[in-house]
Design a protein around this nucleic acid. Structure first.
Lengths: 123, 123
DNA sequence: CCGCATCCAACAGGATACTG
DNA sequence: CAGTATCCTGTTGGATGCGG
C-alpha cells in the first residue's frame, strides 16, 4: 500500500473528470449566480449574460443530474421554475472558490508568461 | 467598493477561464505526473496512458505558454526533452489538489445523484 | 526520440423557430 | 415563461505519415 497522501492514476481520472465537468463554458458562471439563493430561469439568463437559452437549459440539466442543483416547477400560468443549489452544490463551491481565488491572484503571472512566450515565438 | 470577499462577474470570468484551461482532457493528468519531478516526453506519454502524441505535444505547449512548465532540450542524438513544473505550476497544484480531494470524497454522491436522475427519466 | 502536418470524426455550442 | 427541436459552425482530439 502506498501512503494515502499520494493519490495516483485511479483517482486522478476522477479529478480530471470533475474538472472537465466544472470546466465547461457556463457551469461555473451559473453556479456562482446560484450562490446567492434560488433563481428563476430567465433571471439566471439575464444575470449570467451572453448565454443562449439552449446552453442554459443544458447546463442546468447537467447540474441537476449531478445533484448540484434542484429544479422546482410552480404550475402557474405563466410557468415558473426555480433553480437552487443543493448541499452538494454549495460544498462544491468551497474548492472551486479556492481555485478561483488562486486564479484571481495569479492571472497576471499567467498573462505575463503568455506574452513572453508569444514574443519569443515571433522571433 | 464592494466587500472583498464577494467576487462578482468581472472576476468570475477569469475563474471560468482558468477552469476551462485546466479542465481540458489531459492537462491535469500531465501536471499530476510532473508533480514527481522532471520527465521526458515519452516517459510522460507512457505514464499518462491513452494520450496521443499530438495531444501531449499540444498540452505541453499550452502549459509552457502559460508558464506552468519549462521545456529543456538536450541537443543529443537521439534528442532528449525534459519537462518540469515551474513555481507557478507547483502553486497551481495546491488548489487543484484541493478540488481533487473534494472530487475523490464526493464522487460517490455524484454518481448516486446521476443514477437517481437517470432512473427518474426512464420512468 | 521528439514533434510537426494532415486528414477526419465527434462534439460543443450558437441562432432561429416553434410549443404548452 | 420556460422550455424543445432543428440546423449549422467552430473546435477538440484521435490516427496516420513524414522529418530533424
Amino acid at each position: 500500500m502506498k501512503p494515502t497522501h499520494l493519490h495516483l492514476t485511479e483517482d486522478c481520472r476522477a479529478v480530471s473528470a470533475v474538472l472537465q465537468r466544472v470546466g465547461d463554458k457556463w457551469t461555473i458562471l451559473v453556479v456562482q449566480r446560484l450562490g446567492g439563493g434560488p433563481k428563476r430561469f430567465n433571471e439566471l439568463r439575464n444575470e449570467v449574460g451572453g448565454i443562449s437559452q439552449k446552453m442554459l437549459t443544458t447546463t442546468l440539466r447537467s447540474l441537476e443530474r449531478d445533484g448540484f442543483v434542484t429544479r422546482t416547477v410552480f404550475p402557474t400560468i405563466p410557468p415558473r421554475v426555480d433553480y437552487e443549489l443543493t448541499d452538494l452544490g454549495r460544498e462544491l463551491q468551497v474548492p472551486v472558490n479556492a481555485l478561483g481565488e488562486w486564479a484571481r491572484a495569479n492571472i497576471g503571472r499567467i498573462n505575463a508568461a503568455r506574452e513572453k512566450f508569444d514574443r519569443s515565438i515571433a522571433a
